[in-house]
Design a protein around this nucleic acid. Sequence first.
DNA 1: TTACCCGACTTTGGATCCATTCTGTCAAGC
DNA 2: GCTTGACAGAATGGATCCAAAGTCGGGTAA
Lengths: 239, 239
Amino acid sequence: MGQQFQRALASLRRMIVSGELAPGERLTEIPLADLLGVSRMPIRMALPALEQEGLLERAGKRGYRVRQIKAEDIADAIEVRGTLEGLAARLMVEKGISDKTLEGLKACLRQGDAVFTDGQLREGDFTAYHAMNMRFHGIIVAAGANSAITVALARNDALPLASANSITIDQSHLAQEFKRLHFAHMQHHLIVEAAESGQGSRAEGLMREHANAALKYTDLFKQDSPLPDNYRVIIGRPG
Amino acid sequence: MGQQFQRALASLRRMIVSGELAPGERLTEIPLADLLGVSRMPIRMALPALEQEGLLERAGKRGYRVRQIKAEDIADAIEVRGTLEGLAARLMVEKGISDKTLEGLKACLRQGDAVFTDGQLREGDFTAYHAMNMRFHGIIVAAGANSAITVALARNDALPLASANSITIDQSHLAQEFKRLHFAHMQHHLIVEAAESGQGSRAEGLMREHANAALKYTDLFKQDSPLPDNYRVIIGRPG
DNA sequence: TTACCCGACTTTGGATCCATTCTGTCAAGC
DNA sequence: GCTTGACAGAATGGATCCAAAGTCGGGTAA
């Protein structure tokens, strides 16, 4: 759509996710318009969009407030993500996995292997893993060839920490985090192995379990403040 | 939100679902505003909302067009619905089904039994079944107590014929349709039996399969015209 | 002193106006 | 004859204005 609308939407989204707009804070159109230097109109378009994304909720009959994201919300979204991605994995196998898809997945495996085989942490390892991980999940969802899954996942992934497009790293325990991602990558291997063998149901189960690789960090949200400084969030855009 | 917006949204939704606005038809704001007797503003709010619901799609950089709903889209949405409702059923069992929930489900079973036990068709049977069916599915989703499932299902159900809130009846084969619904109701019985016995995984599988009770009618959409006259669609609102 | 009602102010929803951008058509040039 | 470019018309995005609805506070009466 419009330039101003896109800018307002992106700005508000960023301010909410970063905690600049505190959970529970009431948002009214005019102050936001002044703050962002636009008229009320782009704000009026953006607020319902952010409500759709689950970042805002209506405050009574008038106005919106920033939604308090609870650990439970993220855990719920991760469970749904695992279920839907599991379904996609099974459908991918049942419909017959194409050579191109299989090659794409194997390329992801190789890229992940390259990160982990030298056994030591290097600058850029996390972003490299993250990029590969997004591709891996994206390929499976696309190969599931079910439009409703794609749509449902896109909406479910609006909660940043629930999405396969973001990973959260505890920078004060890098070695441990490295092992955690390594384990997740071994799950990638098993998923591809199952898919290649035509084991759709096994692929589904593995994919479901794999979503839990992110679950550990939902505890962080039991505090109502933003993430502690030692955590780093990497968020990417699908595709 | 506003009165005019709600009216515009409802009117447009009805006109799209009924085929009054043909699939592929291009929608521009001013003619729609004139048609509904409102200003452009409510229309401008309604069109993105209908795009979110999957009833419209963007037509290039300017304007929207009515989305062509394919049989495949509905089949996809039904598969996702079965998967998510299955997840809800399992969670309901695993979290411990409450007395109130169980009693609600059993009430649905009794209401359904009342429809089928006298063995003959009566006026209002389909609407009675439909009301019960909505409650049954609603109770299970609510008892799953996973907010992401609720949200995902609400969005997935925007396609009318994919939702548990609508049933489609072939009025030229009423006796056969009666049997079809009877079979679906027997699945309800099995689901409750599994839930009561703590068989979460069995409940999940049954619920998944149960979604297919609606699948038969996706063939109807292979024609690009609206439904034949002998089909009757009953659509309800959840809650 | 407390509860209820009335009024003023704030905020949102709707309409209209203006500017920008896109699209389609027609003509000219290659 | 086909392609490209320019111009005109139309549609959208953004801003401002107006009306209606809601909320908050104060005052009065019980």
